[in-house]
Design a binder for these strands. Structure first.
Lengths: 260, 260
DNA sequence: GTCAACGCTTTGTCCGGACATAAGGACTTC
DNA sequence: GAAGTCCTTATGTCCGGACAAAGCGTTGAC
């Protein structure tokens, strides 16, 4: 009688045991439910960095789901950079710091999320002819009317950024009151404009006397600049912004993923 | 006899007719072949912005593929921001400018791709104790040995950036000759290190006398700064970079997609 | 003339299975 | 003892089908 040649070996990192369950009565997609639970488990430390997730087949069986559905959930987390898949090895949690990617959000939302209680002072809010730079970026005819908004963004009374925005004038109204109580993007979303993508250019230069005065910086200080053209879900350009930030108090943080 | 109530209406944008075909003998995945052909068609203008792609079912049938395979190809282009899908409407090409997203590439590759013929001058290439800032970012023990590389990147003889990099000293050797003939990332890839993600921080400040001197800028000029920690596919930090760019000649351009 | 209801089109979600392929370990051979 | 070969494991790719839901135009009633 031949001895069994391949005895089962004990895995070095045993798959984590988690309380996972999906609600089939819920209208939220099953793969999305699973993805959120896995993401929460990673945030809470239940899934430690480097730990394996257990193979897809068994995971699907234990949840009563099909493999494609489980794969779709895992894929969304791989795209976010939370998980890494390697063939023949398994799916494991990457052990980099949290570091959420820079998203297409307004500065207002970013600061509010950080608990910095942002406030806004509207310096200008008019309609007028668009500079050539703006008509080119937004694809508008020359000498076209646009909404022009100049704002100063502050946290705890300290200026952080000087924001200049230009929008097609027929797109929506921009009441000064609403601009001071929330961000521009929140206002646009409330009017049915769903942002889809944006093209950004980040640079630096010495501030003008006006800019440095508004931001409370010494004359000629180095400032961080950002130009942005935003597009809605139909691909139409809906906003042009030319902003300057106090480099001494603000930086852009974001994460890059290879290829994608 | 009842009249037909729903006469077929002529579509406003008729689906584009394309020469698409896949090679089943090729080792490259079918969905990837299709994605590349569609992307090429968009770049070449065969698929004009706003045009519909034709429904997935027919597209799959005409190619002899299954719908999941076609969907996978389309999904990859949606993730890149080239296409937009809307239920009940179809898949259409977004009509924003090309504007490829910032990828995790070295400055060398970026400049070379732009046809700017970059060159590199290695100013320092040694091993030594790591600054606290570096050990913290790379997760190394304090007072650890690291490879330290200082380089000046030029195009057409003009300085563009001053690059300071720190790598775990046991990771690989960094011959000065190779560093001058290609980028750091290409060198790492040749040694089997596959980059996966990076955490970046972009800011601005006035340059020091040394920095401005090296870059050929007037003393105290505004410079663009970038700190980057790169991770390989196992999630290990493999590189720390602290770079300064001539703001008068260089900006970061990239594209943001909502949610993802 | 206005607006609700219907139906068509298209993508979104989900299933269950099949084979291919890369990574890694265990065993055997030299 | 070192190198090659095999097996196991897990993800990668692909198929064919099914039903649900959103968008939009047409129809029809008021």
């Amino acid at each position: 009688m031949m001895p069994s040649r391949y005895a089962p070996s004990v895995p070095k990192h045993e798959p984590a045991q988690l309380r996972l369950a999906v609600d089939r009565a819920s209208p939220v997609p099953l793969y999305f439910q699973l993805a959120r639970q896995l993401e929460a488990a990673i945030e809470d430390g239940e899934l430690t960095p480097g730990s394996l997730l257990g193979n897809e087949i068994e995971l699907a069986a234990s949840l009563g789901l099909s493999r494609p559905t489980v794969r779709q959930a895992i894929r969304s987390l791989v795209d976010k950079g939370l998980l890494v898949r390697r063939r023949g090895v398994g799916t494991q949690v990457v052990h980099t710091g949290v570091a959420r990617p820079m998203e297409l959000t307004s500065l207002y939302d970013d600061l509010a999320a950080a608990g910095l209680h942002p406030t806004t002072r509207v310096l200008h809010n008019t309609r007028g002819p668009a500079p050539a730079e703006v008509t080119a970026a937004l694809g508008l005819p020359e000498s076209c009317q646009v909404s022009v908004v100049h704002r100063l963004r502050l946290t705890r009374g300290e200026p952080m950024a000087y924001l200049r925005n230009y929008l097609p004038s027929d797109l929506l109204d921009l009441p000064t009151g609403e601009l001071e109580s929330s961000g521009l993007y929140a206002l646009m979303r409330r009017h049915g404009i769903t942002l889809h993508s944006a093209q950004q250019t980040v640079g630096a230069r010495s501030g003008t006397a006006e800019e440095c005065g508004l931001l409370g910086e010494p004359a000629g200080s180095a400032l961080l600049t950002m130009r942005r053209v935003s597009y809605d879900d139909r691909g139409r350009p809906v906003e042009y912004g030319a902003h300057v930030y106090r480099a001494s108090r603000y930086t852009f943080e974001f994460r890059l993923l290879v290829h994608g």
